[in-house]
């Protein structure tokens, strides 16, 4: 059995094997082009965020006026995905502070999206930095979402956040009462604990007010708009996110071996903010979402062949995860182009 505990025995092994904060493979790319790809703009991200909020408002309004009819079901289904899945990519990109040129605009959206995707913002900022330092290094990476030795039905439950959201809520409660978990202590600097404490208090207050409103008006409707979409709208981000690293090599320092790039439709890329170009993102996290396709075109000859569709990626990932539940040594080995070995 692999021990994925962050800071546990596997962390020591990783350090002994030189896997901690190691140098990772970088493709050759012209510096002038990289400068263009790393350039930031406020306008494009603002249009994307506005379109997201408009879609949320539109389907939220449709869900409200159709409440009590069957039309509410598709309206809430779409609203839920916009809230509980699309917030993930906004959380992610603004967490890197690459969505907008402005740090304040990135941070403002980051805090909103963190609440929607149900993640305490400060802890996840540091866990994500660790994820980029030590990608899929067992014992170090706090964001290995799909572990080996785990029956696949548990991941089916995760389509609706059955374990992840309550576990996160438990941490919010602990943080709100002033307690910091061992996990947080492993990768989060002590001077940032107070941010986690206050973020948790604010997020819990918002949820408590929503519950109170639901009780007072004797309707589930407020919770269907705030809080519950983090469960019922979560399935799409799990479906997309599972293609990022699941089933690939662990404990390697080459992102071409532990990360996938998958071609996806324009609609999915709008929802996912081009995180389907995930190998490219991990190698160059300074490149904003809107330039990832250009980056992909510039370096794709040095990377493994991308998966042609989400379906094709899932067709590999799901059987692999089923096998890994009982065979933890099994993984998919990606082929690196011979010319750049």
């Amino acid at each position: 059995m692999r021990d994925y505990t962050v800071g546990g025995p596997s962390a020591l092994t990783a350090a002994q094997n030189g896997l901690v904060d190691a140098d990772c493979y970088k493709p050759k790319i012209d510096r002038e082009l990289m400068k263009q790809l790393m350039a930031r703009t406020n306008g494009l991200a603002a249009v994307h965020i506005a379109s997201w909020f408009i879609a949320l408002g539109l389907f939220g309004w449709l869900a409200h006026i159709s409440w009590g009819t069957w039309w509410a079901v598709p309206s809430f289904a779409i609203y839920g995905v916009l809230y509980g899945s699309m917030s993930d990519s906004r959380w992610h990109e603004t967490g890197h502070r690459t969505a907008f040129r402005s740090k304040r605009m990135n941070d403002a959206i980051y805090y909103i999206a963190s609440f929607m995707i149900f993640r305490e913002p400060e802890t996840w900022r540091w866990s994500h930095a660790r994820h980029h330092s030590d990608t899929i290094i067992v014992g170090r990476d706090a964001e290995i979402a799909f572990k080996r030795n785990v029956p696949i039905y548990k991941y089916v439950l995760e389509l609706f956040g059955i374990t992840a959201v309550p576990n996160e809520f438990k941490q919010w409660i602990q943080n709100a009462s002033g307690k910091i978990t061992d996990n947080q202590k492993d990768f989060q600097p002590p001077e940032t604990f107070r941010i986690s404490i206050w973020s948790s208090r604010i997020y819990i207050s918002i949820l408590a007010l929503t519950v109170l409103t639901s009780v007072l008006i004797r309707s589930l409707q407020p919770l269907m708009f705030i809080g519950l979409p983090s469960f019922y709208g979560h399935w799409l981000v799990v479906t997309l996110g599972i293609t990022q690293h699941a089933g690939l090599a662990e404990d390697v320092t080459d992102h071409r071996l532990n990360t996938r790039t998958v071609y996806m439709s324009p609609l999915t890329r709008w929802i996912y903010w081009n995180m389907n170009y995930h190998v490219e993102h991990h190698i160059y996290p300074s490149v904003p979402f809107h330039s990832l396709k250009k980056l992909h075109l510039a370096i794709k000859d040095q990377l493994p062949t991308p998966y042609p569709s989400l379906y094709r990626a899932l067709r590999e990932v799901i059987p692999t995860m089923r096998r890994q539940a009982s065979d933890s040594d099994f993984f998919i080995k990606r082929n690196i182009p011979q010319s750049v070995n």
Binding site: R97, K103, R125, A129, H132, S133, T192, Y284, P285
Partner: peptide, 19 residues
């Protein structure tokens, strides 16, 4: 920084964005 997007002021060296 190209790895984690931490930021520094070029004139003073001050760290202006986490990590």
């Amino acid at each position: 920084c190209p790895k984690h997007n931490g930021r520094f002021n070029v004139l003073t060296g001050e760290a202006t964005a986490t990590p």
